[in-house]
Amino acid sequence: MLKKKVIFTFSSENVEKPVTYQLIKKYDLWVNILQAKFKPNLGGKLVLELKGSKPQIKEGLDFVRQLGVKVEFLEQEVIWDEKKCVDCGACVAICSTGVISLDKITYKLKFDYEKCIVCGNCVEACPLGAIKVTF
């Protein structure tokens, strides 16, 4: 079993397609919707967590791409600029899913991207502008 967090970007042409339904029904994937932002007829974004075997996920994502939906993996969407960061920790407690922590020995920041749901709390809490989320 593999777990992947993905972002689907829809355009006005493919926004009506029942992507989530097909991923569950046809590809037998376990789907958890983390975030969804849509504008009727204009397009939108969907953040999902997918669970399934490696071939299932691959085939499911190929199907989504064939519909013209842009597929990105979530790891690429949260950008932490370590050079700008001073390891203050202002982003730690505000993180809604415990992605960010301070190492108990070095007191430097650690990011566990697996847990991230791209809520954006850390972005507005960072005094250095060192975290960016493109969603």
Binding site: V86, D87, C88, G89, A90, V92, A93, L102, T106, Y107
Partner: peptide
């Protein structure tokens, strides 16, 4: 340690000053 308890509620803590930099 990252968590304090106030009035029975566990609350996550964040420093605003960098302990790594202080060190």
């Amino acid at each position: 340690e990252g968590m304090i308890n106030i009035r029975g509620k566990d609350i996550p803590t964040s420093p605003l000053s960098s302990y790594a930099k202080a060190r």
